[in-house]
Design a protein around this nucleic acid. Structure first.
Lengths: 198, 198, 198, 198
DNA sequence: TATGAATGAGTTTTCATTCAT
DNA sequence: CATGAATGAAAACTCATTCAT
C-alpha cells in the first residue's frame, strides 16, 4: 500500500499537525487530534502518510524545504560573503518569527522524538548545512574568512549559535524581537570576542 | 512517602540508568530494565526516587552538578579570561570524552523528554550558564572581550557552539578526538571568522 | 475524549461485567476478564466507558434504573397503601430472584468498592428510597400508618429489613425461595412484633 | 511461625488500625501507616498478627467481642422481653455513639473487604445475632411476640433496622443524636406500621 | 477515496510480607 | 523481641494502526 504525497488534504494534514503540536506539545498530539484539526477521519491520514513518523518527517521536510529554498534564493541575490552570512541569519530569524507555531515545533517539540526520527530530521537539515558550508567555503577561498580552520567547526559555531539563539527566543515565549538579533549575531561571528583597540 | 536520597544504592541506580539509557535509548529504558542493571528490585527504585521523572532529574542533577563543580574549580585556577574560556571548553569536551555514556544521555536521550522534565533540566543548566556569563562579564569588564554586545547573545554563541560541537561528535559515534577541538573552537570564538592580513 | 453511552456493545459489556463480578468477585474482575467475557478487546471498553469506575457506576445505574422503573410501575397499579408496600417488597424480591447474578453483584460485590463509588451508588439508590418515602407519606396521610414517627426511621426499618433479608438469601447461596418471604415480611412490618390476643 | 495474641503492643496495634482506617479509609490504610500510628516497626505487626487480614479480623473480633459482652450483660439485668429488646437497641446505639471511629470502621470501612474476610466477620456477628434470636425466641414462647413467623425473618427485621439506622447516622457524619432513636425504633418494631384507632 | 469503530500490546507504581541484623 | 530495607507480583489505560463498509 503506497501513499499519496499530494492533494489538498496532504497539506491540510501537515498544517493541522503543526498547529496541534504547537498548541498541545509533541506528546499530546495524537493522530486522532490531528485528524480532527484537519477535518478528516483518522484513517484518511494513512492514505497520505505511511505512519505517524512519516507524517512528522514529511512535515519537517515540507516546511524545511521551503525554508531552505527561500533562504537560498535570498542568499543568491547578495554579493559579498559577509552579506550572504548576514542574509542567512536574517532569513532564519525572519522565517521563524513569521511562523511562531513552526518555530515551536522545530525548536522544541520535534526534538523530543526518538533517535530514528532525529536521524531522518538530520538528513533534511543536511541541505541547510550545505548552504552554510558553501558560504564558509567561498569565504575561505577568497580570504574573507580565516582559512586554516576545520570547516566543520566553523559550521558548528554558525549553526550552533543561530540555533541556540532561536531556541532561547522560543523558550522565552517569543517575547523579544528575534530579527533584531541578526546583525549583532552576525557581527559577533565575524569579529569574534576579542577586543581590538582602535 | 518521602524517599531516601543517598546511600550506595542511590548512586548505583543512577549509574544503571545512565548505562541503560545510553545503550537502549530513552524510550526503551523501562524501570525494570534499570532495576535489573542496578541489581535491585523494581520497587527498590521507589525507595530512593519518587517516580521515574524524579530519577531522571536526579540523574541529570547529580551528573551535571559534578560536571559544573569540576569545571568551576578548574576555571578558578587559571588567570586570564581567555584561558578561562579555553578551560571551560576543554573541561566540557574532556568530561564528556571521558564518559561516552553520559555524553549520549545528556546530548541525545535526555532531550527527548517532555516539556516539564526539560524545564527542570533547564534549571540545572542555569548554573552552568552562569559560569559562562561570569567569564563574559569579566572579559568585558577588563576589555579582553568586546563590550558593546548583549551578554545573552555572546552566551548563546559560546554555549551553542560548544553544544553543537559535542552533539555532532556524539552523533558521529565519538569517532574523532573531541578534546582536540577545544583549541580551534576557542580560537574561533575569540577571533571570529574575519580574515585579517598582516 | 467523550465516550459512547449506547449501542449493542454498551449493554454487552455491562452484562459481561455483571457475570464476571458475580462469578469471580469484585476484586478479581479485571478489565481484561470483562472484555474477554464480552467478546471485545480491552480497549473497546474505553470507547464506551471513561474508566473502570464509570463502568461500575453505569452498571448500577442501568440495572437499578430498570429495577426502580419496574417497581414504580407495579406500585401504581395497586390501590391501597398496604398493597403498595407489599408490591414493593414482592418486586424487590422477585427481580433479584430472577437474576441471581445481579443479586450477588448488588448485595455483596458492589459494596466492596471505595467510598467515592459508594457515594455515587447512593445517589442512584435515592430514587428507590423516594419510592419508599412516598408510600410511607401517603400511608401516614390517610392514617393507614402510624403518623407520629420520623419518616426516616420508618424508611430505615423498611429498607433495612428488605435489604438484610435479601443479603442473607444471597449469602445462603439462594437456597430458599425469597419471593415466599414477601408476605410474612410485609405482615411483620405492618403489624409489628407485638402479640395481640384475638 | 505462630503469633502472639496478647501484650500491650497487640492492643496498641489494633487501636492504631481503628484510628487509621477511620481517618484515611480502608483502602488508604497500609500496614506501614498503621505501624507508624502504633509506634512500632512494620515487621512488628507480623509478630502479633499472621497477616493483614488476620489483623482486621482480630480488630473486629476484639471490638465486637466487648460490644457483645457488654450488650449481653445489660440485657440480663432487665426482666421483660420488650425491655430486653429496647436495651439491645440502646446498647447498640450507645456503644457506637461513644466511639465514632469504631462506628466508621464497622459500618462503612470494613464492609469494603473481600468476600473471604466478610465471611469471617459474619462468624463474629453470629454471636450477636444469637442474642437477638434469644430475645425473639423467649418473646414468642411467652406470647409477648407473635409466634407464627419464621424467627429468621424477625431477626432480619430487627438487625436490618438497627444496622441501617446506624449506617445512615454514620453516613450523615454523626450529625444527630443516635441514642434518641432507640425508643422510636423499638416502638416501631414492636407495634409495626399499622395505625390502630383508639 | 474516505470513514471511524475496533484492536491489543506494553509499563509504571504500590504495598503486603520477609528476613538479616 | 524488634527493626525496616528490600522484594516483586499484578492491573488499568492509551493510542497508532487496520479494515469492513
Amino acid at each position: 500500500m503506497t501513499v499519496k504525497r499530494k492533494g489538498p488534504k496532504y497539506e491540510k494534514i501537515i498544517d493541522a499537525a503543526v498547529a496541534v503540536i504547537a498548541k498541545h506539545g509533541y506528546h499530546q498530539s495524537q493522530i486522532s487530534k490531528i485528524a480532527k484539526e484537519a477535518g478528516v477521519a483518522d484513517g484518511t491520514i494513512y492514505l497520505y502518510f505511511k505512519n505517524k513518523e512519516d507524517l512528522l518527517i514529511s512535515l519537517f521536510r515540507e516546511k524545511m524545504g521551503k525554508f531552505i529554498d527561500t533562504t537560498r534564493d535570498e542568499i543568491e541575490h547578495v554579493q559579498s560573503i559577509e552579506e550572504k552570512l548576514l542574509t542567512l541569519i536574517e532569513m532564519h530569524f525572519k522565517q521563524l518569527s513569521d511562523d511562531h507555531e513552526l518555530a515551536i515545533v522545530t525548536q522544541l517539540e520535534l526534538r523530543q522524538t526518538n533517535r530514528d526520527l532525529r536521524v531522518k530530521i538530520g538528513e533534511v537539515l543536511k541541505r541547510y548545512l550545505e548552504l552554510v558550508d558553501q558560504i564558509i567555503y567561498d569565504g575561505m577561498e577568497q580570504k574573507t574568512f580565516v582559512s586554516d580552520l576545520d570547516i566543520r567547526i566553523v559550521r558548528q559555531m554558525i549553526f550552533g549559535t543561530i540555533d541556540e539563539t532561536t531556541t532561547s527566543w522560543v523558550m522565552n515565549d517569543h517575547r523579544y524581537d528575534l530579527i533584531a538579533l541578526a546583525k549583532p549575531v552576525h557581527q559577533l561571528l565575524i569579529n569574534g570576542l576579542r577586543y581590538r583597540s582602535s
